[in-house]
């Protein structure tokens, strides 16, 4: 007998709310993957999200679980406070690159140093989205932004920072990987990494971060597909995808 079965439907960890993201923005994709993982692991009811300041500032409107909204860059500290007093909850931050790699550099590095048992979803879109396309710490060399109108000159504006590599040097980091959202195969790999990053927390294995190369079609002045192509062509070559730190016990995890 032939029946129609549902192979994919909107995750339950989502609220029935239309996001405010621009069409084709992969913030939405990243959200969806987190929601799918929370569903699959059955941990929605104990999840506490920490939203950043950035385009995903309203992330809490889209997830059907408890959420707090941090100050710009401070999500890892806030998540630390929550996790330390509510160790049985699943606590994760969701942060952009300005948030995590610029203003919040101290907070993320020290959360990693402490091996804080939280999960970090890090959206690297090489730009400040919310404030209108200024240069981010991750903006590629030569890339034009509203605050690097002549292109990022690394001599005066510094070099793009590779967070996964950097955090991988820290003993407290259990899991630091970079994935990309630019095509279906990579979206699937991203989801697996997110799943693993949450499993790390569930098993008390410490600090886990997934860096996701992401697109900002609006500020890059691209169509959604061109923006994904930019991620796949330009960003991936500066930010190689891969596993930068997978602690042995994390490697042994069957996910």
């Amino acid at each position: 007998m032939i029946e129609m079965e549902v192979v994919y439907s909107r995750p339950e960890s989502f609220t029935p709310t239309t996001t405010h993201y621009c069409p084709g923005c992969t913030h939405g994709t990243a959200h969806r993957l987190v929601a799918e993982v929370l569903d699959e692991m059955g941990i929605r009811e104990k999840a506490i999200g920490v939203a950043p300041v950035g385009c995903s500032v309203f992330a809490y409107d889209y997830f059907n679980h408890d959420f707090v909204e941090a100050a710009h860059g401070r999500a890892p500290a806030m998540a630390t406070g929550i996790k330390r007093v509510r160790p049985n909850n699943t606590v994760y931050t969701y942060q952009g690159d300005g948030d995590l790699a610029s203003i919040g550099m101290a907070e993320i590095v020290h959360a990693a140093i402490r091996g804080e048992n939280i999960t970090v979803i890090f959206i690297n879109n090489a730009i400040y989205g919310m404030t209108g396309g200024q240069m981010a710490p991750t903006t590629l060399p030569g890339m034009r932004t509203t605050s690097s109108p002549g292109g990022r000159d690394v001599e005066t504006m510094g070099y793009p920072v590779r967070m996964s590599e950097m955090l991988s040097t820290i003993d407290g980091t259990s899991y630091a990987v970079r994935r990309s959202l630019h095509n279906p195969a990579n979206v699937r790999k991203s989801k697996k990494a997110i799943r693993r990053a949450f499993e790390v927390q569930e098993r008390g294995m410490g600090f886990a971060m997934v860096e996701l190369l992401s697109s900002c079609p609006t500020n890059l002045k691209f169509t959604p597909q061109q923006a994904l192509d930019f991620v796949g062509d330009q960003m991936v070559s500066y930010y190689p995808l891969g596993d930068y730190k997978v602690a042995p016990e994390v490697k042994a995890l069957k996910v």
Partner: peptide, 23 residues
Amino acid sequence: TGCAICAVVCPDAAITVYRESRK
């Protein structure tokens, strides 16, 4: 074919995918 690739890339979780299944 119900491969769900469209749903995998959809940033807005707008797509539900169905596929025939033999019992």
